[in-house]
């Protein structure tokens, strides 16, 4: 299978990047450091629910910043670098279509993203499981949602990489996309606010923070979002913006619909990238 061969080659190649390992170590120190502070603060004595609030809240904050940057870093040059350097001439001399190349790249870089997240979380997870009463199921759900969240940026990165013509465009594009993904929603709301309008609730569901919140909220065994409601941490939970969609609202406002939105974020950029990449002269 073409995409398997490409995905494996791509994983072998990019997992050897020294910068990537630097990022993994940084991530592990950051997340591990937070876990250590939580353990050290003695919060555990207040019960697993309180630990959950602090862990998911603090980790969520780091992940919401770290995963988009890393996901884009891993993927934004995946296609354009092969074009720039000429390695694409080797890849496409073999019996692969350009579509299989995009799919293979997406899968290979997804594997890299997953390894990055799992290895980065390893020290923190070990510490929390040993030292606190936090439910392993909650931690695992958090990891799984983080990986799903990562897929989104790998998809966006690979898709845009197929649109770029040079590595420089890739670098600039990656930075623009990073800020764009965070800022489109507040900026649009601000502009609309001047005209006394606001984005429909549905549009806000495409926002990064809201998506992570919704994914975690719908998968977590305790049913709570990041930094969930609790008498001891009322203000914290409100700032984390947990929204529980009532069962009565339209299907696209239900919690599970976030996974459809996730798929849209992944598939649309890949499809746009492929549409152009399949037509160009290399």
């Amino acid at each position: 299978m073409s995409w398997q061969a490409i995905g494996k080659k791509d994983f072998q190649d990019s997992v050897r990047s020294k910068v990537l390992w630097g990022i993994i170590v940084l991530f592990a120190l950051l997340i591990g450091g937070i876990a250590y502070l939580i353990v050290d603060s003695g919060i555990n004595e207040q019960g697993s629910e309180v630990v959950e609030v602090f862990v998911t809240g603090a980790f969520g904050f780091v992940v919401l910043f770290f995963v988009p940057i890393t996901g884009l870093f891993i993927s934004i040059k995946s296609v354009v670098r092969e074009r720039d350097s000429g390695t694409i001439n080797l890849l496409l001399s073999l019996p692969h279509t350009r579509g299989e190349m995009i799919v293979g790249k997406f899968l290979g870089r997804t594997a890299v993203m997953t390894v990055t997240i799992l290895v980065g979380f390893l020290p923190a997870v070990a510490l929390l499981l040993i030292q606190t009463s936090l439910s392993p199921a909650v931690l695992l759900t958090f990891l799984a949602v983080t990986v799903l969240f990562g897929l989104m940026f790998v998809g966006i990165g690979v898709g845009f990489s197929a649109l770029f013509n040079s590595e420089t465009q890739g670098t600039v594009g990656g930075i623009v996309i990073f800020f764009g993904l965070y800022l489109w929603s507040p900026i649009t709301n601000l502009v609309l606010g001047l005209a006394d309008l606001e984005l429909p609730q549905f549009a806000n569901r495409f926002g990064l923070i809201q998506m992570f919140q919704d994914m975690f909220g719908s998968l977590s065994p305790t049913g709570r979002g990041l930094g969930a409601p609790s008498s001891t941490t009322q203000s914290f939970s409100q700032s984390a913006g947990a929204i529980v969609y009532p069962d009565s609202v339209a299907f696209y406002m239900q919690n599970w619909f976030v996974f459809i939105i996730l798929a849209v974020w992944i598939i649309v950029p890949l499809a746009i990238g492929y549409a152009r990449f399949s037509r160009i002269d290399l």
Binding site: K9, Q12, S85, G86, T87, N89, L90
Partner: peptide
């Protein structure tokens, strides 16, 4: 005009 995969 090809290049090899540096890390492989």
């Amino acid at each position: 005009g090809y290049d090899v995969y540096d890390r492989l």
